[in-house]
Structures are given as C-alpha cells and as structure tokens.
Design a protein around this nucleic acid. Structure first.
Length: 530
RNA sequence: GGCCCCUUCGUCUAGUGGUUAGGACACCGGCCUUUCACGCCGGUAACACGGGUUCGAGUCCCGUAGGGGUCACCA
C-alpha cells in the first residue's frame, strides 16, 4: 500500500512553526516509503481567506524543501485541491448522509441553539440537543419553513455505544458517542463545513494516514461517523502533541507574540532578526514577523535544514544521542511510534544552536551567495555588488568564521564597506580604548609610522611587525590592539586584528588611523578649551 | 464546568522492573587568546506528590495535584 499523507493549511498568510512540524512529519512518513505528500487548501470559510494569503505558505514550504506531489500549482489526479472549488462533492456527500438518515435538516435558530447549550452548561451536564427543530420528513420541513425558518444539515449522531479507534501516537482511544454533539456539516447557504469537507477530501484523495495536531483528536469520532456513513475505509490516525510556548506548556499561537516577547530568549531571537530585517527594508511588526513564523527564518538567513532538524527533534527522537539528521537520515529513521506524547516547548536557543552547527558546514561559495543579498539589499554595497567588494566580502566571511551564524549577520561587518570618513565609532569603545588610556593616541601615531612603511600588508607579516613594535615600545600587545581596533573599525569586538588590517588594506588602514587621531586631538583641544 | 490528554535536569529528550538515571541546548567555572566568538576540559542540575504491587519501581496499578487540549452555521 502506498502511503499518502496530506497537510491542509488555511490560507492565512503565514506559516506557523508548529504547522510546519506537522507538515514535516507528514512529508517524512510519505516520502520514506515512496508515497505521496499532498497539499490541500482548506479555504471553505470564504470570508476569512484571501488568495494572496496562500503565496507565503507555499514559499515557506519550498524554502524548507518540503515539496508536495499533488496540490496547488502542481495539480494532480484529484484536482482541484482547493476546498472552495470542491463544494459539489461535499454537497453530494451531505445529501447521501441525509438519505441514509445519518443527518437531518435542522431548523433551529442560532439563538435557540445557544439557549439549549447554555441551559446544559448551567445544569452542568453534557449538551445534548433536544432535536426539537429536526426535520426528517418533507412535511416537517415544510412546516418549519412556513414559519420562515431556514435549515442547516446536522449529523444525527449515535446516542449510545462507544467510538473506538487506535491512534498511532496516542494509542487506543474510546469515546462515548453520547458526548458527541450533532455537528453541523452544511450551512444554511448550502456551503459545507470543515468536518464534512475534511472527511470527503481525505477519502477522495486516498489519504492513508491522517497526521495532525492533537487538537483534532476530539474531532475524530465525528469524522469517523461521517466516513463510516459514507462507506469510506478509514485512514490511520496519528495525533501529534502541539508545539508549546517558550517556557510554558500552552499551545504556541501566533496571536500571542507580545506575551512571548517577555521571554528573554524569544525576545533576543526576535531582536536579532528584526535588526537584520530593518536594514534590508522589511516590515518588523511582531504580528507578521516573528520567530513563530517560518518566514522570519527565511528572511534573516537561517539554513532551512537547521529549521527542519530542530523541528524534527521537537517531539521526536531516534535514540539517546543522535541529534544531527541530514535529509536522507530523517527519511531513513523517522517513525511515528517514536513521537513523544507530551507537548514540547519551543526553545529559541536550541534552534539557534542548530543553525550555528549547520552554518558552520556551509561552504564558502554558498555563504557568499547568501550574504551578498543582504549587503545589496541593505544598500551597504551597490546592487549588484562590485567585484572588489565581492572579493572583500569573501575574505570577511572567511575571517569571521562562526561569528556569522546566519547569513544576515554579514551586516555586522558593514564597517569594512563604508567610506573611511563615514565610519562611526562605538561611544563606549572609543572612550575606553582611545580616550582613557593616556598612551593610546601616541601609540596609534607611532604605529602609523611603522605601518606606513611596512612592506607586506598581509596578516602574518603584520603580526610580526606589530609584535616587534610592541617590543620596541616596551608594551604588551593588548595596549595597542584595542585602540587600533577602535580606530580602524569603530568597534570594540570583531574577528582577528591582523586579518582585519589585511582585508582593509594599507591605504584604508592608514587613512582610518589618521582620521581617528584627528578626532582624538580635536576632542582633547575642545576639552582643554573648556 | 463536561469529556479527553499529558507530567524525567531551566529546555528538548534517552530510559519498556535491577542504570553511579545517559545525551543535547542553556547555565557556571577553567584553559586557549589581541577583543568578540569558536574550540577544549570540568561542573551544577531531573524521575510532580501519595498510596499500593514486587526481593526490587522513573518504569506496573490506583488516587491526588499541576499543566494542557476541546466543547461554532471556525479550521
């Protein structure tokens, strides 16, 4: 039997990290055995959906390498894959259930229904609909219609016995049919609701395994009821625990970003991402740009495999030590029976740790390609980047090593690209390294003389030269290097000083040293004037 | 509230009756070092609680507590 799984997003505009994990598990189960993964668009609730809201979701999946065998854009033998275009299928199914006496026309108004529900709640009992406005014959229907009522179609659920099924993650599940309400499957306007559409599509698409969030576990009995009523063979079910908020066990929700921002680690991730996004001109409103949404990672230069690997381990494990999984290894080892039963909190730090490991393994060429885009979009360089900038960027990437944990981090090294006289100095660093040490100005001045006549402007030679300089001055290397770094980069920290000098080149180094010295003496003059 | 589910270091997890309860991220300390990182070495840290069953319980049973999910003419 070919395994066929599906993921069914509503076009809401954003791809949620928890949803991606569900999709990934579906994808893995299908692909590991040569099956198919299908993307179906749940847009039956026409009002709340817009067409353009689908694009970001599809882009997100493509970025992650979660490809679909059937669905939007690729089509397939069961077209269409949009629920909004499959209405007649659902209506046929509703009619069939009506004919079979497994559903009925219900003429209750919303108010009447709510009143019954509230009465049950007050009495602290299960809500069981009285079926007072149920019409099973045309005569009954006509009578209600004479009163000006309209109907919805409801499931005529069993009121005794149990619904029993096996869930591949949760285990055996048993639910009293009596606790299942008579759910509506068709609206007064003839359009159909989720449960019906879902079951009909799963059957028509020949889905063999329904893998979804555990919030759907309680929906399963009524869906089984529909499927059985329609004579379908039941798929296997697997309900995944949800992905929880950072630092809590509540379900992760994209609407509660403000709250998550109180979490230190979440906030830090958001801020580092937002800093990059701002520079490349993206909207950084946490409502649409946050670590809960995959687009966030895509925009700031995460490695999609790092995201997949992290998500794989959020609620699943192979053994007591394996953490790194290539695409092939995921496919080889994934199994539903090793899915954990409890909710797993989203941990921004661990995700970042995965990103660092993955980035470390990315070859220089590919890193260059990724970083280039950020410098261009932030207008740090021309777009497209000139050749000499490109060469410099490559040197920077090499020298930066793992200080580049995501591609967007290249913007931290923008000081190499800007004009010497445009360099800004970190106020604290300037104070601590240039102003405060009495010798700093003098030493930078002396070093200027040495460097201006130094023959070979390459890292190793510079190291020898500067160490020699320290000896003749009778100082430790730290006495000059910190001041030099601030003078030349404006920053307190960065990668190796000698690499920095080599990349900048003699002219720019000397120029920046001179500029810094001017600035220093200007400050001192105005100080003494006061 | 009804129904259902879950509970091992701060976090993700390993563990299927006998383990010094293992790993990873984070954290702390040290080494390395021109800064910041990396790396290396070391460390702190967990079986929610109470009863059983058993020679023996993180592992099985019952209860309690806590956490969570779900109860639409949403999906």
């Amino acid at each position: 039997m070919t395994v066929r799984t599906r993921f069914a997003p509503s076009p809401t505009g954003y791809l949620h990290i928890g949803g991606v994990r569900t999709a990934l598990f579906n994808w893995l189960l299908a692909k590991q055995s040569g099956g198919q993964f299908i993307l179906r668009i749940d847009d039956t609730d026409a009002q709340r959906n817009q067409e353009e809201a689908l694009a970001p979701i599809l882009d997100g999946f493509r970025w992650l390498g979660i490809d679909w065998d059937e669905g939007p854009e690729v089509g397939g033998p069961h077209e269409p894959y949009f629920q909004s275009q499959r209405l007649s299928n659902y209506q046929d199914a509703a009619a069939k259930l009506l004919d079979a006496g497994l559903a009925y026309r219900d003429y209750a108004t919303t108010e009447e229904m709510t009143a019954e529900r509230e009465a049950a709640e007050k009495a602290k009992t299960d809500f069981v609909y009285s079926r007072k406005w149920m019409a099973e014959t045309d005569e009954q229907a006509a009578a209600f219609e004479a009163e000006g009522r309209s109907f919805v179609v409801r499931l005529k659920m069993h009121r005794e016995g149990k619904c029993e099924f096996n869930d591949l993650v949760v285990g055996d599940v048993s639910v009293d049919w009596s606790t299942e309400a008579d759910h509506a499957i068709q609206r007064a306007d003839g359009t159909c609701l989720y449960h019906l559409a879902n079951v009909v599509d799963d059957a028509e698409f020949e889905i063999t395994h329904v893998i979804r969030g555990i919030e759907h576990l309680s929906n399963t009995p009524r869906q089984i009821f529909i499927a059985q009523g329609l004579g379908y063979t039941l798929p296997k079910y697997a309900h995944l625990p949800y992905v929880a908020e950072p630092g809590s066990k509540k379900k992760l929700s994209k609407r509660k970003i403000a709250e998550y921002l109180n979490n230190k680690d979440f906030k830090r991730l958001y801020q580092s991402g937002a800093a990059i996004a701002e520079r490349i001109g993206l909207e950084t409103d946490p409502a649409t740009f946050s670590p809960v949404l995959v687009d966030f990672y895509k925009q700031i230069g995460f490695n999609p495999d790092a995201v997949n690997n992290y998500l794989l381990l959020l609620g699943w494990s192979l053994d007591d030590k394996t953490e790194m999984f290539s695409r092939e290894e995921m496919l080889e080892h994934f199994s539903l029976d090793r899915v954990v039963k409890s909710a797993a909190s989203f941990d921004p730090k661990k995700l970042q740790a995965f990103q660092e490991r993955y980035m470390d393994a990315v070859p220089l060429k590919q890193k260059s390609r990724l970083c280039k885009k950020y410098l261009e979009q932030a207008k740090v360089t021309d777009d497209p980047m000139e050749c000499d900038h490109l060469a410099m960027m490559k040197s920077i990437i090499e020298a930066a090593g793992d200080r580049l944990s995501m591609a967007g981090d290249i913007l931290n090294f923008d000081d190499f690209f800007i004009e010497d006289d445009q360099l800004s100095y970190d106020a604290k660093a300037w104070q601590k390294r240039m102003v405060k040490p009495e010798q700093a100005g003098f030493l930078v001045g002396e070093l200027y003389k040495v460097l201006s006549v130094h023959p070979e402007f390459a890292a190793t030679e510079l190291e020898t030269a500067i160490k020699g300089f320290c000896e003749t001055q009778g100082i430790k290397i730290g006495d000059i290097i910190h001041a030099l770094r601030v003078a030349v980069t404006g920053k307190a920290a960065g990668f190796g000083m000698f690499d920095t000098l080599e990349i900048l080149g003699r002219d720019r180094v000397l120029n920046r040293m001179a500029l810094a010295l001017d600035r220093l003496s200007d400050e001192q003059k105005s100080d003494s004037a006061v």
